[in-house]
Design a protein around this nucleic acid. Structure first.
Lengths: 218, 218
DNA sequence: ATCTGTGAAGCACTTCACAGCG
DNA sequence: CGCTGTGAAGTGCTTCACAGAT
């Protein structure tokens, strides 16, 4: 669609959430050697209607061939460019406790271009430790280090009562995207993105539907 | 609102997502000793408009007092009842690798009433191991065990290429809610809920907004 | 005077349906 | 003939704004 001459903020949030899923599915189709895919088929793999998929893509351009479908490789490249997956992203982790260690060890980040390049904690026992090749620094140094190091994303894995302070510090360093594992909402100024990873919230969003036909009755 | 005489499925999904957040914020207000809160104040703590908050609650009843606001304790109790937080939920974990171990060790589930009561893996080296008080069973036994044990939620923490098979098995056992940590979309039949915990997807949903004002330029 | 509960209006996303291209 | 791209219609969530209760 040309009616959106690059104003990225005007794209519906739902579209932006779906793009990475399209990309991931296309990547797996590409591995399988598929060259062409229709909106129908790609959509059905993701429970998205064919019309929705085509409409989503139409915000960014015209990538398909009528009567044929989409070239898998080409659409994947376009999506990667649009989402920003064609570059490396530098991340700083704050909080290297049990959860933080699991995050550092997570193998899913690197292959997608996300790399943790700094780790901070405020516990003297943890500061100075080497975790997966990173030396844990004192959270007190966070602002000094990040102003020099230029990081794209902050990952918050501290207890809830410290999380907002950490978020504020990251924001002061110019970090524009935060992945928040702490169990609080987390307030950020306009222009900064924050996403919450909270399995308990996810569970609680499902128990609502479960409670009538509850399982211990099975 | 009485226009919804208990058809839980007709409640907008966004409402159901927000209820647990309201509950969590109310819980923290209660700890602080607050007795009354207005829609204005509760909303501002969560970046939700006062009107939205009131409308959300109106799907379930009338919990406030005009001119005064909401009784913190009472509203929290009502929400817990509505969401189903006033009971224990039994969960089965499938996949006890690095990620699975982190999930078992996560301290956030128990205080909210979520308990992992079974753990499965298909790796012979892991089967039989004791992890945080649980003995890991063979995934091959999953269906037999779960048909006896009655579990409310399945947690999938296996590699992507095994995830759909595990999901299918859980569904066959009558599990109606699945928390999916695997990097695939995961298809379930109607009537089964699935939620994905995928930090990479969350990151990719933010990089879209970052790419123009990218950080390595800072 | 304050703040809830809620119809009605506004707005945004999704689906429809078809022209048009391969 | 199949499938995309897209205005237009449809649907549903959010915001508005105010009557009514305390």
């Amino acid at each position: 669609m040309i009616s959106n001459p690059y104003n990225p903020a005007r794209i519906p949030a739902g579209v932006v959430e779906r793009l990475p899923q399209y990309a991931r599915t296309l990547a797996s189709l590409e591995e399988q050697g598929r060259q062409v895919v229709s909106s129908q088929e790609l959509g059905s793999l993701l429970d998205v209607s064919a019309a929705q998929l085509r409409k989503d893509l139409s915000w960014f351009g015209r990538f398909g061939k009528q009567g044929r479908g989409y070239n898998v490789r080409q659409l994947l490249d376009e999506l990667r460019r649009i989402i920003g997956l064609n570059r490396q992203w530098r991340m700083a982790l704050v909080g290297v406790g049990r959860l933080g260690r699991a995050i550092v060890g997570y193998e899913g980040f690197t292959p997608q271009g996300f790399r943790i390049v700094e780790a901070f904690d405020s516990n003297p026992r943890i500061i100075g430790q080497r975790v997966d090749g990173l030396v844990v620094r004192d959270t007190a140094e966070l602002e000094a280090v990040l102003r020099a190091s230029s990081v794209d994303v902050g990952i918050v894995a501290v207890p809830g009562d410290q999380a907002q302070d950490v978020i504020d510090a990251l924001v002061r360093c110019g970090v524009k995207a935060i992945l928040n594992y702490a169990p609080i909402a987390g307030r950020v100024p306009r222009g900064v993105r924050i996403k919450r990873i909270d399995p308990v919230l996810a569970l609680q969003g499902m128990t609502y539907y479960l409670k009538q036909s509850a399982a211990s009755a099975k």
